[in-house]
Amino acid sequence: MTRNPQLNRHGELQHLLTIDGLPRNILERILDTAAPFTEVAEREVKKLPLLRGKSVFNLFFENSTRTRTTFEIAAKRLSADVINLNIATSSASKGESLLDTVDNLCAMQADMFIVRHASSGAPYLIAQHLAAQKREHIHVINAGDGRHAHPTQGLLDMYTIRHYKGAFNNLSVAIVGDILHSRVARSQIHALTTLGVPDVRVVGPKTLLPADVQRMGVHVFHNMRAGIKDVDVVMMLRLQNERMQGSLLPSGQEFFKFYGLTEEKLALARPDAIVLHPGPMNRGIEIDSAVADGSQAVILPQVTFGIAVRMAVMSMLAAT
C-alpha cells in the first residue's frame, strides 16, 4: 500500500489536500490545535511568531475573495510573509504551465503554497511535483480544487459543529442543496463520517446529487421537509450558478420553493438546531434572510473559526 501523500513517513501532516483518507485522530488533532488559536484574536497584538520568516504564496487560479482573505489573515497572524498571486489574471493567461509557475515560485524560496484551482487534483499535482524534486520542506494546502475538495472549509465546519454541539457521535446532520457541484459538500461528508456522525443526510433534487452519493455513507432525501426533520445541524450549500451547465434547474425561485431554507422548514429540525453556510450566500435562493440573520444561524462564527482552523493547519504543516 502506498503512503497517503498528505502524510510524511512519521505519519504527520505534510500537506492538506483532502479530508478523504485522513484518519480520525488527525482530524481531531487539527480541531484540538485550532482551539487555542481562537484566543489570539482577542489580544492587543493579534500575532504569533510561528511562521516568522516563512513565505506563504496564495496561488489562486480561480477567483475567491473570502477564502483567499481568510488564508491571508491566518498566515499574517502567524507572522508569515504572504504573497497573493491572482493567476487568473497573470502568467497562466500568458501561457505558463502550472508546474512552471510552481518552479518559479520555488526559486523565490516559497515555504508554503495555498492553491485554489478549477481543476480537481491540481494541488495533488503540485505536491507530487515537489516530492519528485526533493522539495518536501515546501507544504501545499488545497483551498478548493474543482468539484473535488475544500478541506479547510470542511474542517472549519466541523470545528463550528463541535463548538456548539460538543461531540459528533449522537448527531443528525443534513447537507442541503447543490451537492453535485460542491467540493465543500464532499469535504463535509468525509469529515462527518470520519468523525463518527451516525446520521449524515444529503438533501437536494436528483439533478444536483452525484449518482454514487450513497456510497459515501449518507442517506439521500429529495424532499427537504423529510430530510431536515429532527436534525441537529443544517448545512446549507451555495447554489453554484457559475458551475451550472445546461438546464439542471428551472429557476432560482423554483429552487427556493423546494430547497430554500425558510423559518417554516427550519422549524422541522430540532429546536436547538444550528444552521451553517459556507458563503457567499444567495439570499432568497438557498436561504431566506430571516434564517440567515436568525438566532440559529452560526454563519459568521464559521468565518471567525475558519481563521483559527487555517492557523492550526499551517502551524502543524510548518512544524514538520
Binding site: E12, R29, D32, T33, A35, P36, T38, E39, E44, L48, P49, L50, S315, M316, A318, A319, T320
Partner: peptide, 28 residues
C-alpha cells in the same frame, strides 16, 4: 501556554498535542 512562542518550533518536533489556551484575565 508558551508552545506558540518556543524557539525550537519547526526544528523537527511536531506541535504539542495538548495545547492550552493562554488566558490573561487582567489588563497587562
Amino acid at each position: 501556554d508558551v508552545s506558540f512562542y518556543r524557539d525550537d518550533y519547526g526544528r523537527g518536533a511536531p506541535l504539542r498535542r495538548d495545547l492550552r489556551r493562554s488566558n490573561i484575565p487582567f489588563e497587562v
